[in-house]
Nucleic acid binder design. Structure first.
Lengths: 201, 201
DNA sequence: CACCTTATAGAACGATCGTTCGTTTGTGTC
DNA sequence: GACACAAACGAACGATCGTTCTATAAGGTG
């Protein structure tokens, strides 16, 4: 890795955690420059525009999410075990990754949902990819005979995202100590309602 | 209402819809001044600081939420009918109110959840008040015999907020045409799982 | 070493930010 | 009409914003 790539990655690391606190829109070249002990122009040259920097941060975030949340879960056998692992990793991924201020993409989703442009497109792409992954995982649980054949996979993915978002808000804003427990309870109810009926005894 | 109050309310109206698009943190005195055809200093004098303006917008938002979502629902008899009305009004309240860019408080929740200060406190207060309202409404449905006595009202309020948030994101960012249907499906499943068991026939 | 490319720094630009100050305009009261 | 008070304005401040330009320093290759 050349010197340029190395510096660029160091900038991105700092921008990543900075964006976690200030939001992708709140990123400032000046602040980022002094955090990385660089000049504004020197830093700027690595991206060419602020928007490119923001896009790079979003892509970085998406990649780390895949590394921390999805990849480990995909080492588990397909089915409910894998789905559960995704949810568990997902709920805690802001602790594992360097995200003191919460998930970057989720914050960006609220920030850019009504501002057309490349940033909104990138966020939308990330969230659609996640939703597809969730849908696929649910469908495999159906194929494995763990969930009922008439299960609406998209509906489950939809509700899982709801559980994630309210959990983040409850933890981060409301300081609700029961958030994690409630999230798991919601997940269990979601799975139970769609599980195949075992023989009653 | 004196001239001052009148102008202040006009500013607040504009700030309200502006904040819907730019976020409470993205409010700009300059932009707001030209939208209201006032000078920056003339507008500024009504609030004394930007933070006071932001707080006023949050309070305005909370009041409109109560007017549009809660008050109509509370004209219905207590119980599941009222709970359902709250959810229905809630999901659509950004259309009814002048909120082209989505719910101001919900966006502010993601924006300030890690930035201590009066703004975060105000947002937290608003969301806690809503959660209390939801919990009370659920408990009354229990008292009315519509939900089971062992129902965890806090858990239901928790999950309702999840449904709201994922619905907003699905509609606004993902342009998901099924969001409303899925939200109602999630709500129905939530209620059904806690409903009292009627005699099987 | 020289050479070329890349990387970084420094200074400055115009724009916008929130805020302050002094003044002018408007409104209502005696 | 004179006075008091509130409301709005216009100009300016210092700070920060993203960006551009030019120059210096560092790295790699012959």
């Amino acid at each position: 890795m050349g010197k340029g790539e190395q510096t660029r990655q160091a900038i991105l690391d700092e921008a990543f955690s900075l964006a976690s606190c200030c939001g992708v829109g709140g990123l400032s070249i000046g602040v980022l420059a002094e955090r990385t002990h660089m000049s504004k122009s020197g830093l700027f040259a690595h991206f060419g525009s602020k928007e490119e920097l923001q896009l790079a941060v979003l892509r970085e975030s998406q990649q780390r999410f895949a590394d921390v949340v999805l990849r480990p879960a995909f080492r588990l056998p397909r089915g409910l075990a894998r789905l559960r692992a995704i949810v568990i990793n997902w709920l805690d991924w802001t602790k594992v990754a360097n995200l003191p201020g919460g998930c970057v993409i989720n914050a960006a989703a609220a920030e850019f949902d009504d501002q057309p442009g490349p940033l909104r497109d990138e966020v939308k792409h990330s969230l659609l990819a996640l939703r597809r992954t969730l849908v696929d995982t649910v469908k495999k649980a159906v194929e494995a005979g763990e969930l009922r054949p008439d299960t609406d996979a998209e509906q489950i993915a939809f509700e899982l995202e709801g559980i994630y978002q309210v959990t983040q808000q409850s933890r981060r804003l409301l300081d609700d100590p029961d958030a994690d427990r409630r999230a798991l309870a919601a997940f269990d109810r979601l799975v139970r309602d769609h599980a195949v009926i075992h023989a009653k005894e």
